[in-house]
Write a protein that binds this DNA or RNA. Structure first.
Lengths: 223, 223
DNA sequence: TCTATGGTTTTTATAGATAAAATTGATATT
DNA sequence: AATATCAATTTTATCTATAAAAACCATAGA
């Protein structure tokens, strides 16, 4: 459905992208008719897309005010990362506890290699995509389908903050190195070490983002 | 919004309830017009409600076939419970690690007391409600708002299976006892013990449900 | 000046209409 | 009997229309 060509899907994808890329910043309100005109379709599919975004926890629909992009606070980020830690932790544990699949290992290596390359080239958007793919693959390869939907939802909810961090501070310089290390633990079947290591990575990432949010938009979070 | 009186909310609540109570069993397909006639409203709000249920992971919308209630398999249940274990585990850890709030402790005790009472009276639906409230409160009192939304979503997704188990086997006889025990660990601040104990409870519950699903609907899961 | 009142405007929530896509079933052909 | 074709039917995806709710604004009265 996300790749469908229906107007609902198009509206959903475009609005979501605009929100995640902070072109529609926190607090922005968009009337149904405005978006419909912009997207060159009627209000019905736009409205349906907005309802879906509300379910995603990205916007809120208020009577007479269309949708309003939800603010994202330091508190939200630390909460979300706290959950991501245990969710991804579960995935890593499951993955490390079973013999590694060659194809899957290759996919993970490819992602980290791409992170390395894009870091050299300074291509932030490729780096971000590779980073996401790595973590998404870990969850996917864990074999728990429901885990994937939970993970993706949390990832999306924190995406805006990561994008802000990326713009403000660039990609974390030692991220590829750290991912190689995590992958090594997984391949060696060292579940406990892998989980522990990921824990520290997540905590570090959360701290960075929180600091950044505080700097960039401290106080100016719309309520 | 769930308590709103708009037609969308009404349609959402009624359809969801029918699905969770297995009155609309797995595999059932409902055309937009059918549901609209049934609910005495136009197709528009019904369609919007169906889209929301699709986001909840309860139904799937297919071109020309309206919505179709998703099947739930043994695999789904063990996957969902695996995630619930770490999600609720996080909540319990956070809760046990901070000094217990009197009001919150009382709320938790009230739920377990109600579980005790309803077990004596054989009132299954009250028992189920109290059980849900207990676990929901634990997550709520953990102080992580996002954890609550994740938890509720997973709980809903597994609700149909729990309802089937409840009808088939009644309420677990020693459940209240076990909840008292868990609560005791939490109040004493024994985080590790509490998490460990909950882990065993969840595993036990998952196993029961899986066995039951296998018995009740083994093989007949519509694809 | 401040507050209350009522009419105006805006925006949605829902209904109803329509064209297009998909399915079905019947008929004709091999 | 099997298959291909085409018309009829069903159902949706989307658009447009409308009534009701809410917000706004100006004006009158204190």
């Amino acid at each position: 459905m996300p790749s469908s060509t229906s107007n609902v899907s198009i509206a959903y994808r475009k609005l979501k992208q605009a929100i995640l890329e902070n072109r529609l910043g926190p607090g922005t309100q968009v009337l149904e008719q405005e978006a419909a005109t912009q997207l060159e379709m009627s209000r019905t599919p736009v409205r349906e897309a907005m309802l879906m975004l509300q379910k995603d926890g990205l916007v809120e629909m208020r009577p007479r005010q269309g949708m309003r992009v939800l603010p994202i606070t330091v508190g939200d980020i630390s909460e979300i990362y706290e959950i991501l830690e245990v969710v991804e932790g579960l995935a890593i544990r499951k993955l490390a506890e079973k013999p590694i699949n060659e194809k899957e290992a290759r996919a993970l290596e490819d992602s980290v290699t791409l992170m390395d390359l894009s870091l050299e080239r300074g291509d932030l958007s490729v780096w971000a995509a590779a980073d996401k793919k790595f973590h998404e693959d870990i969850v996917k390869f864990s074999g728990n389908v429901h885990l994937e939907t939970v993970f993706l939802q949390l990832w999306d909810r924190s995406q805006r903050a990561r994008n802000m961090l990326l713009k403000a501070h660039g990609a974390p310089v030692n991220s590829a190195q750290e991912h190689w290390e995590l992958l090594k633990f997984i391949k060696e079947g060292k579940a406990a070490e892998a989980v522990e290591f990921q824990k520290s990575l997540r905590a570090e990432a959360a701290e960075q983002i929180c600091k950044m949010i505080f700097d960039v938009m401290g106080g100016m979070v719309p309520s």
